[in-house]
Design a protein around this nucleic acid. Structure first.
Length: 543
DNA sequence: TGGGCTTGCGCC
DNA sequence: AAAGGGCGCAAGCCCA
């Protein structure tokens, strides 16, 4: 069932078969060149491959055309098990810091560097796996599900990088040219940006102004009688002055040019695919991060360059109001779950009389989750508390715990870090209240308040994708990229690239997997996770 | 010249 | 329109 892969200094691989406790029963020696064949001879099957880091092992297997059904990522699991409140009583939590802790922070990109580290004596994958099995089997069952889901996520991440997001460079170039003018020579401003910069300079009577420089811009605006604290767009939008429209347009286009312009296209799109590196578990809450290309900040402006291959479609699905639904599930707040039975949770809150408008519902709920105190969020808090007492109590408890310097956990047990030294309030001189320290404590409380919800939403998304990758594989034949496959992921949204003939089936499957993810997290508690699903030729058409 | 910090803005 | 949480990235700024 479990096979622990261990790379030897000579480049060969040892494949240790273990029992449920991680004790080795037999070991195969595999030559480097035979690894893909060795793995593929056991797939599909009931093997769970155990390795130090999915990002280091799996891409080579995928390149060789080998896909695995399941794995156990020791690095990701170590991070979770070392700090979880569910495993605090286990040996792995009590053990002194080891190479596995140092590996935790390593960027999982440089394979050779990782293998150098792996060969250190204190990075024995067999011993580590046994410790992790002991922790999982002796703790709340949810932590084992989290470890498995995290590992499945690592497989998804590697597979998405392998398959890539379909990207038409010609379409991207055309939209850039339409907005900015033809591609400029290296280092020059595109014509439209230069034109807008000139317009700004004229309107401010500042012929030498570089509008890309915030300090210069603030000075030039003040000389023109416009008092601003910053050059943020939202602050500029409040001002009536002829310079504002061209300046806002300049900022918008400058952003497009620097973040997703021709340079980005040259750097990140190859052979019709954008292949970002995803970093599962890269955010403390359990959300993914990404490395290079700004994959998780892909602006709506360029999504129309994401075009399915001929004869293929994109199925774009996003979970509606995921975080409030997750909060309802965690807190077992039946009133909130009732609102969540509607496809539009916020409208249902209005219909039930909890609030008067959809906007009030939205800002009230977001304020509860983020810790908003001012504006509409703050005004709605009493009503939200009255209508949804259990949900509100859950996030309030998390905030208070954070303010006291305690740790909080997600539904499946991922646990927040301890606050930095700076946050700790001095209590021995109560009358010499350190207001700065109180402010830091409240800020940490907002973090822990959000941690429990954002982190649990990330767990829902992991289960959604984990079940989806299995189901999508069964919908086609051949290599991964020849079947319907996950092509992009954005916290609560997935894009599947699929042959046109399978698109409807894929859409249905994505919905089924969302329902399944809800059951895996919250069992029979009646909470629903509706999606908005679109079958499109390009990503820009969705939503 | 080069690294670290700040600002601003894209995404959820 | 902003408010509250989590990020990554590019350009400018600042100082060694």
């Amino acid at each position: 069932m479990y096979i622990v892969l261990e790379r030897r200094p000579d480049g060969g691989v040892l494949a240790h078969h273990t029992d449920d406790g991680g004790r080795v029963t037999t070991t195969d020696a595999v030559r480097e060149g035979d690894l893909a064949t060795y793995v593929s001879s056991r797939e599909p099957g009931d093997t769970r491959w155990v390795w130090h880091d999915t990002a280091a092992w799996y891409p080579r297997l995928l390149a060789a055309g080998v896909r695995v059904e399941r794995c156990h990522d020791l690095r990701l699991a170590h991070v979770i098990l070392r700090s979880s409140l569910f495993t605090a009583h286990t040996s792995i939590a009590a053990a002194p810091s080891s190479g596995w802790d140092r590996l935790a922070g390593a960027a999982a990109v440089d394979l050779d560097a990782l293998f150098d580290v792996e060969q250190r004596d204190d990075l024995d994958p067999v011993a580590e796996f046994a410790l992790q099995r002991e922790a999982v089997t002796g703790s709340d069952a949810r932590i084992g599900r989290l470890v498995n889901a995290e590992s499945a996520g690592a497989l998804v991440a590697a597979e998405m990088t392998h398959a890539g997001l379909p990207w038409r460079a010609d379409a991207h170039d055309a939209l850039l040219a339409a907005a900015l003018g033809p591609r400029p020579r290296h280092g020059e401003r595109p014509a439209e940006l230069e034109r807008l910069a000139d317009e700004v300079r004229r309107a401010l009577d500042a012929p030498d102004l570089n509008p890309d420089s915030p300090p210069e811009l603030v000075r030039a605006l003040r000389r023109a009688g416009i008092t601003v604290d910053s050059t943020r767009s939202h602050e500029l939008k409040r001002i009536e002055h002829p310079v504002i429209p061209p300046l806002l347009e300049f900022k918008k286009l400058a952003r497009l040019h620097t973040a997703n312009g021709w340079h980005w296209l040259d750097t990140w799109v190859r052979d019709g695919r954008f292949r970002p590196v995803y970093v599962p578990g890269g955010v403390v809450t359990g959300r993914w991060a990404s490395n290079g290309g700004g994959a998780l900040q892909l602006p709506a402006q360029v999504r129309s360059a994401v075009i399915a291959d001929p004869g293929w479609k994109l199925v774009v699905a996003d979970a509606a109001q995921l975080e409030p639904r997750v909060l309802a599930g965690m807190s077992a707040d039946t009133a909130m779950a009732t609102a969540a039975r509607a496809s539009d949770l916020y409208q249902a809150m209005v219909d039930s009389g909890a609030v008067q408008t959809r906007e009030q519902a939205k800002y009230g709920i977001l304020g509860a989750i983020y810790g908003g105190t001012r504006g509409e969020s703050g005004r709605m808090l009493p009503r939200i508390t009255r209508a949804y007492p259990r949900a509100m109590a859950l996030v309030e408890d998390a905030a208070r715990a954070g303010e006291r310097g305690e740790r909080v956990r997600t539904w499946l047990g991922r646990t927040s870090p301890l606050p930095g030294e700076a946050m700790v309030t001095s209590t021995d001189e109560p009358d010499a209240v350190d207001r700065a320290a109180q402010g830091r404590a409240r800020a940490w409380g907002r973090f822990t308040r959000n941690f429990v919800v954002q982190g649990t939403a990330a767990e829902w998304a992991l289960h959604w994708m984990a079940t989806l990758r299995i189901r999508l594989w069964e919908l086609g034949d051949g290599r991964l990229e020849e079947r319907p496959h996950l092509a992009f992921f954005l916290h609560d949204e997935v894009v599947v690239h699929t042959p046109e003939a399978s698109a409807e089936r894929v859409a249905e499957t994505i919905r089924e997997c969302a329902a399944e993810a809800g059951r895996l997290l919250f069992g029979s508690f009646p909470i629903e996770f509706p999606l908005s699903v679109a079958i499109v030729d390009d990503y820009g058409q969705a939503k």
